[in-house]
């Protein structure tokens, strides 16, 4: 197996079944849409900047991965998936690929950088940060994939994210005077959880107050080209609903318009709304009509 597979091949495998013969979709064959995200999940990602998956991994896989990590005496950096090759079973799981195709397009790329974040026992928190420089854009171009092979409790030093911060032009140094933020979400998750987060989402970790190592393996994915059409399980009529001023807001249109996961002020909320709709339209492949 290619250890850094071109995602176009793997994603296409997901999308042409059933009905594919020798890799080609036959007339009348339908795509397998079962692992693609829904409109509501896509809107939720645009608003919150993350999406949690609990793929049905083979029995014992989480334990084998965690066991290998527990026994590692060094951090292999980008080579972690060569040292622990079982990780490819996670990346290539249809649910993971389906979410990646939905968010990054059918030919998304699994980038070469990856990292084993082993939070040692009895170590302190990590402050809010973005990886690298922030990339603030309305497009969804890069995602982090955070895999947790064990259950993560609040005491084990979970990753903590701040929903909705992915569109903020805020270098890490500007986050230094924050600790807890209203609406932050700790990744207190079940073994086998794969969290997809927007690359620019504010994140940190709590302290590990236990005697066990907390494992997280981070992967990086990127978009290769802008969408020409939706790559998720999209209903063209999904926005044909009333705007719910003050009413029920659990459909994609109203989630995009009114979602406010950390309760920011009105001016910020209006700006967020504009950026979200630009993001949504870009994903629809309708970006040409968006210049304002």
């Amino acid at each position: 197996m290619d250890r850094n597979p071109p995602a176009a091949e793997t994603a296409a495998e997901t999308l042409v079944e059933p009905g594919a013969v020798n890799g080609e979709v036959q007339p009348g064959a339908s795509r397998d849409m079962s692992h693609l995200l829904t409109d509501l999940e896509m809107a939720g990602f645009i608003v919150n900047g993350y999406h949690l998956l609990e793929p049905d991994l083979p029995e014992g896989l989480n334990e084998r991965i965690a066991g290998r990590l527990d026994g590692l005496g060094y951090n292999p950096g980008d080579a972690i998936a060569e040292v622990v090759p079982e990780l490819w079973q996670v990346i290539e799981h249809p649910a993971v690929k389906g979410a990646l195709v939905s968010l990054l397009g059918e030919d998304f790329e699994v980038m070469g950088h990856r990292h084993w974040h082993c939070k040692q026992p009895h170590t302190g928190h990590m402050s809010w940060h973005q990886d690298s420089t922030n990339n603030r854009d309305y497009r969804i171009d890069r995602l982090l994939g955070l895999f947790y092979p064990t259950d993560i409790t609040p005491e084990m030093g979970p990753t903590v994210i701040v929903p909705g911060t992915q569109f903020r032009n805020a270098p890490t140094d500007r986050m230094a005077t924050y600790s807890n933020i209203h609406g932050q979400v700790p990744m207190v998750v079940k073994a086998g959880t794969f969290a997809l987060t927007h690359y620019d989402l504010w994140h940190g970790t709590a302290a590990n107050r236990t005697a066990v190592k907390r494992h997280m393996i981070k992967f990086l994915f990127r978009r290769v080209r802008d969408n020409k059409a939706p790559t998720w399980n999209h209903d063209p009529d999904v926005m044909d609903v009333p705007t719910a001023w003050g009413g029920k807001r659990d459909d994609p249109k109203n989630v995009l318009s009114f979602g406010n996961p950390i309760g920011v002020g009105q001016s910020d909320h209006y700006k967020e709304r504009q950026i979200r709709w630009k993001c949504w339209n870009n994903l629809l492949g309708a970006d040409d009509a968006l210049d304002d």
Binding site: V160, S179, N180, H182, T205, A206, G263
Partner: peptide, 28 residues
Amino acid sequence: RTPSVFSEILGYTPVEPVRDYRAEITAD
């Protein structure tokens, strides 16, 4: 949320002037 002292707080970080004190992100 806003520059008004009456608006709700989104972030809360106390800094106590004692040795080795650190303001932390917490899971709970």
